[in-house]
Design a protein around this nucleic acid. Structure first.
Length: 409
RNA sequence: CGGGAGGUAGCGAAGUCCGGUUCAUCGCGCUUGGUUUGGGACCAAGAAGCCGUGGGUUCAAAUCCCACCCUCCCGACCA
């Protein structure tokens, strides 16, 4: 893709509305557009990252037997009244009346709706277990949106729901989702921490949270630097007695064993193998997909900009062409790399080298391929690794091999 | 919802105390022409503003007064 034709508009100055790193860099690099406080559009660059993250999630959900669906965001208030959560979540729900004067909600989460769907379609133990998931926009009327897309009023979540005949089945699915989560966050390049957590307004008795250490985190864990372990409480480390330090965390995922809270209230029942009617046993599993962008930037940046992990970066390589006489060669290289399955951004603008390099650092694609005087003199490409700023010199063929190796192709 | 800071061109800022020949200014970006091209270029000529919104005070308001809206930060809240 040509830089000059793509929807990229980097800012030279820091945007005034953004204080935290991820918010600042995502706006500065034109990944996001802020409509209003807590309301954002994803521009093409940001959407590429979002899709990459979503596809990693899909891969791991699908391979663990979950099936993707897409539920409505508009929900009648009645289903919320069945579980009493119209009261519990009253403050955060966007509510309004339609032309028939019926009260509708913009879904802040989907336990009630998925339970209605399962109630309608599942009637026998033979249809269980079953896991459904979606990647969808949620709406929450936050009292104080902040840190860009870390806490916003409209955000994208992956929410999965498991349905089982008994607790043993739930335990199996819960463990599968738990390890899928670990694989997802690892693949996204995150250094995450998993802790047991309080189920809160979701209900149920077991839950685990996935967190990423970051200054702007809204949660706090206690950290033993010696053992590198995290605890909920501020008592001394149970292993080495060392004093604990508070560490701020961004919550990126939360999974719950719900039990029958929703299935009982909404009468999502099935017949077991003895002909007895029972509520299905549920679990739910959430990932803050849009928030992951922020969490990843908060933990992968330097003074020049973003350093996207390979698996989710908008492009695999950015070619910086520094000599307009070499544009044709740069375009050919771009085509060669694309033919090998790489996503390539070709900066062919007639800007000074410094502008191009600084934009490349800001955008944070992992490989910067430089076509300039070394290419003119000796056909050598200079490859700069964004994260380490390491510079390598190689031929075109060596570059293809290098990238193939990097991406395990 | 409490406390603090702020709103002037697409972005970033000065001007606001002390109203008026610096009042609409500067840098970046944008347009046109030329020069440049391995690290945020240079020269020349341009376009772009109801100074957040609405009321007041005054001969005169970006500037003073009142109300409201919006944004950021801290806290409370938070699936």
């Amino acid at each position: 893709m040509l830089y000059s034709k793509s929807f990229i508009f980097t800012l030279r100055e820091d945007p005034k509305v953004a204080e935290c790193v991820s918010h600042r860099l995502l706006l500065k690099g034109s990944f996001l557009y802020m409509i209003s406080s807590g309301i954002y559009s994803y521009l093409p660059l940001g959407y590429r990252v979002l899709e990459n993250i979503s596809n990693i999630i899909r891969k791991h959900m699908n391979s663990n037997g979950a099936q993707e669906l897409l539920m409505s965001a508009l929900q009648p208030i009645e289903m919320w009244q069945k579980t009493g959560r119209d009261q519990v979540l009253s403050e955060v729900m966007f509510k309004f009346k339609d032309r028939k004067n019926r009260t509708l909600v913009l879904g802040p989460t989907h336990e009630e709706e998925v339970t209605e769907i399962v109630k309608k379609h599942i009637s026998s133990y033979k249809q269980l277990p079953c896991i459904l998931y979606q990647i969808q926009t949620k709406f929450r009327d936050e009292t104080r949106p902040r840190f860009g897309i870390v806490r916003s009023c409209e955000f994208i979540m992956k929410d999965a729901y498991s349905f089982d005949v008994d607790e043993a089945g739930l335990a199996v699915n819960y463990d599968r989702m738990l390890s899928a989560y670990q694989a997802i966050f690892k693949e996204c390049g995150l250094n995450f921490i998993m802790t047991e957590a309080d189920p809160g307004a979701m209900g149920g008795n077991v839950s685990h949270e996935f967190m990423v250490p970051a200054e702007i985190g809204e949660d706090v864990l206690c950290h033993c630097e010696k053992c590198d372990r995290h605890f909920k409480d501020m008592s001394n480390c149970p292993d080495c007695e060392a004093k604990l330090k508070e560490r701020r965390m961004i919550e990126i995922g939360h999974i719950f064993k719900l039990g029958t809270k929703y299935s009982s209230a909404q009468e999502a029942l099935f017949l077991d193998n003895t002909g007895t009617r029972k509520p299905v046993i549920m679990g739910c599993y959430g990932i803050g997909v849009s928030r992951l962008l922020s969490a990843i930037v908060e933990t992968n940046y330097d003074e020049k900009g973003i350093m996207w992990p390979k698996a989710i970066s908008p492009f695999d390589a950015e070619i910086v062409c520094l000599d307009e006489k070499l544009l044709a060669q740069a375009a050919t290289l771009s085509e060669t790399l694309e033919a090998s399955g790489f996503k390539v951004l070709l900066d062919e603008r007639s800007e000074p080298a410094g502008v191009k390099f600084n934009d490349a650092y800001l955008l944070g694609n992992p490989h910067i391929v430089i076509i300039g005087k070394n290419y003119a003199n000796s056909k050598k490409i200079d490859l700069e690794i964004r994260k380490t700023r390491q510079k390598l010199s190689m031929s075109e063929e060596e570059l293809v091999n290098f990238l193939n190796n990097e991406y395990g192709k």
